[in-house]
């Protein structure tokens, strides 16, 4: 049994931070604020959609993209607790997400939805 015990204690040291993070999940207070912010951003998005003066400007699309990126990031960081979780999960998610985003941009470029001006 001695070997068993020493082994598990070693492993506990090594994984201490992963395990500790799991227990520092955000609480009801954080969740509530996150939900409120998400709702407000969504309201803002819909509001600017109905502003003809704003939709006509070149800022409209970038603003919407930025707002939804913020929502996306908030959900991923807090609800999917990537902010608090092991770094491995971050790598497993953000790596593919970045490549996938590059591919979307690349395809839009190839199909002439995005143009480069020289």
């Amino acid at each position: 049994m001695a070997a068993d015990h020493s082994h598990s204690s070693v492993s506990h040291d090594a994984h201490g931070d992963a395990a500790a993070h799991e227990h520092t999940h955000p609480d009801w207070g954080t969740y509530k604020w996150v939900a409120l912010i998400l709702t407000l951003i969504t309201a803002l998005e819909v509001w600017i959609y109905y502003l003809p003066s704003f939709t006509a400007t070149r800022l409209f699309v970038p603003t919407l993209l930025a707002l939804s990126a913020i929502k996306f990031a908030i959900v991923v960081m807090f609800y999917m607790h990537l902010k608090y979780d092991a770094k491995l999960f971050r790598a497993l998610f953000i790596g593919p997400l970045l490549i996938a985003s590059f591919i979307i941009v690349g395809l839009l470029f190839l199909f002439n939805h995005i143009k480069i001006q020289f």
Partner: peptide, 19 residues
Amino acid sequence: TGLNNTKIAIWAFIGSECF
């Protein structure tokens, strides 16, 4: 890694779903 197998698998799955 001290992490749960299923959780690693679901994150890999989510990465795949991104594509």
